[in-house]
Design a protein around this nucleic acid. Structure first.
Lengths: 170, 170
DNA sequence: CCGTTTATTCGGTACACTCCGAACAAACAA
DNA sequence: TTGTTTGTTCGGAGTGTACCGAATAAACGG
């Protein structure tokens, strides 16, 4: 087998893995493949080029690139050289992406839950210690810890996070 | 408004929030509600009781309780007193649940991705430093950090995790 | 100006998922 | 045994999503 073929196989394996991961993160397989193709591209690609590389329909590429751009997984460089052609490139710092997910989605979810729980708690009769009060208070405690953990983690790099946990072990 | 009504409203709010969370975690709304009802129940509930409390069909309760049990969100106590009746109770330690998710799903996902990336890397021609090799090596690095972080975090309680990050800040 | 290339939007198809109700199976009570 | 209660399984209706192809819009080159 030639070196070029080996490279193509390795690349394809990783892209397939990205398709899989995309599904886990609630995205479509096409999103995983498009991101993967851009991840390995040496220069930004246009929509027609992505059609060529992935085999998906133009409309699919258009829709998926929009959501990927919105999430921050790829970057849109409008019009290289004044042309109409739009160029896309991948955000290759996976950790940045994960931090974004942590901040935009996980933190948001935790925050709204926490607020709901707090509002429910204040709805309860004062000084009550029934089952509801107890259970809701327990929920609030856990979510407060969670929120703090996520807020702190979102400011660290992967290496720093690793270091923080490794140091704590001792 | 009576205290009982206030309690019911607070409980309902939290359960609705759990329905929402369930969707975020890739479960159905019914799963969120069933878990919520069990979370507030003072004693284990049977399937007919869950039908009564949630309004869902018997078959829905049966299917959803199975998946919730498999994931570890609720516990199944077969036959209290030798009867056929099956009893379900909620795992109320949210952090245990999150640890399970971390270990069973996130860690698994990271591990398989890492393995795929490593295999792809070894597939590449030796001593090569083309684009593919570089990009794949970068991926592997990030995922190695990630795996380590998740492994360490899975062993800590929410409070410990919080402490670890707070100590690192200084 | 007109034809070509590029990007978005729209309608439609295929598919998966949620939930329901009915049928079935298993255990108990009489 | 027969009737009743409980739990699971199966088929189907309704819904949402992914993707495609066609129509449309927008920009450029001649």
């Amino acid at each position: 087998m030639s070196d070029a073929e080996n490279r193509a196989i390795a690349r394809e394996r990783v892209i397939e893995s990205m398709e899989q991961s995309a599904e886990v993160y609630g995205l479509s397989r096409s999103a995983g493949r498009i991101y993967g193709v851009l991840y390995f591209a040496t220069e930004p690609l246009s929509i027609p080029e992505l059609v060529e590389e992935t085999g998906y329909a133009k409309s699919t590429i258009s829709n998926v690139t929009r959501t990927l751009t919105r999430i921050g997984l790829i970057h849109r460089r409008s019009s290289e050289g004044g042309g109409r052609r739009v160029q896309y490139s991948a955000e290759r710092e996976i950790w940045f992406i994960l931090q974004d997910v942590l901040q935009q989605y996980v933190q948001r979810e935790v925050q709204t839950t926490l607020r709901t729980v707090q509002r429910a708690e204040s709805q309860l009769p004062d000084g009550e210690d029934g089952t509801e009060a107890e259970r809701i208070a327990a929920l609030r405690g856990t979510y407060e810890d969670l929120q703090e953990v996520i807020t702190l983690a979102a400011d660290l790099s992967a290496a720093e996070l690793r270091e923080a946990l490794e140091e704590y072990e001792r």
